[in-house]
């Protein structure tokens, strides 16, 4: 175990794929050689990418066949345009037919790409339908969130449709980014430059604490791989039938009552009963998971 630690946060989409899958197992669909660039970016003289900012393909993980998509946060903030979105949707449609062991979505995206906002919004809606159709066909979908852009906008919704959500504390998950809320509602509502506050409201530990992320790992590509391997062996299923959706409805309703005026993750740690709420942001993921598990078994 002397391999050099690779930061998932800093890695490119292609480096993340390489670190996650079995060596030599990856085949890309619609690869850069096909030059599927966005004509909509081009008409606005914005830079284009030969893969339109997302890598999609087939691979094995721990010997099991998977389909995998990885968004490149360095290109337009991983934002979804027509081609980018169609690649992810096509992959999910392929999954419904091929029935791989799972689909891995390496989300790193602020949501819709404004240069082609309508196309991006529609594409995300199509991804949502295709994702639920893949799940209905028996294929689990796992989201991995640990990049600089997190999972926001429509991709935040897509992430929460997944059966498993694997996150690092550095990854963030939400709907509207702090900058958007600050711009519209003012700095008093959300100070987007207060980085520790931003993470206490959107970060991986909060999401794990609320049960939205199913696994919290360190910012280490091999830790993400280990979590994906574990999820391939045993995974949670997102609610899909009437009984489980009624249970989800009750749980979401109860959460709003349990945290009535909460606006800071510190209050969540306190309500959950963690011994030292202020120390939570500094905990390694193992220690955080241990404390969280201990609380769960106390009840």
């Amino acid at each position: 175990m002397s391999a050099k630690r690779v930061s998932y946060f800093e890695a490119s989409a292609r480096a993340r794929v390489a670190a996650l899958v079995d060596p030599g197992s990856f085949t890309e669909f619609c690869p850069p050689a096909q030059r599927r660039t966005s004509p909509h970016l081009a008409q606005l003289d914005a830079p284009v990418a030969f893969d339109d900012g997302v890598v999609v393909g087939a691979a094995t993980v721990d010997g099991k066949p998977v389909l995998i998509a990885a968004q490149e946060g360095q290109f337009n903030g991983g934002a979804v345009g027509e081609v980018h979105g169609a690649k992810i949707r096509g992959l999910l449609e392929r999954a419904a037919r091929e029935r791989p062991a799972a689909v891995l979505l390496l989300v790193d995206s602020g949501g819709v790409r404004l240069h082609e906002a309508n196309a991006g919004l529609i594409a995300i809606s199509e991804i949502m339908r295709a994702l639920m159709a893949a799940q209905a066909a028996g294929v689990p979908v796992f989201a991995l969130v640990g990049g600089a852009c997190g999972a926001f906008g429509g991709m935040g919704i897509v992430t929460r449709l997944c059966d498993e959500v694997i996150m690092s504390e550095e990854g963030r998950l939400g709907l509207s980014g702090p900058e958007v809320i600050e711009t519209v509602k003012g700095v008093g509502e959300f100070d987007s430059r207060d980085r520790s506050l931003v993470w206490r409201v959107t970060g991986g530990k909060l999401r794990r604490g609320l049960g939205e992320a199913t696994r919290l790992v360190d910012d280490d590509a091999s830790a993400f791989r280990a979590a994906a391997v574990a999820a391939l062996t045993h995974h949670r299923n997102a609610p899909a039938d009437l009984a489980s959706l009624k249970a989800a409805q009750a749980a979401l309703t109860e959460r709003r009552a349990t945290h009535p005026d909460t606006r800071d993750g510190l209050e969540v740690w306190r309500t959950l009963g963690l011994a030292q709420p202020e120390a939570v942001p500094m905990l390694a993921s193992d220690e955080f998971n241990r404390q969280l598990d201990a609380l769960a078994t106390e009840v």
Binding site: M128, R129, M132, A136, A151, F152, G156, I157, V158, T159, R160, L161, L173, G174, L175, S176, P178, V180, I181, V184, K185, E189, F190, V201, T202, L206, R207, L210, E212, A238, P239, A240, L245, A248, Q249, L252, R255, R256, H259, D261, T262, R263, D264, G265, V268
Partner: peptide
Amino acid sequence: LSRREELLGLNGAFAHVARCVD
């Protein structure tokens, strides 16, 4: 647009609605 709604996971509430439509 609110910090509280973000903290409570508004994206997850929307995903839940989408699941109910499905």
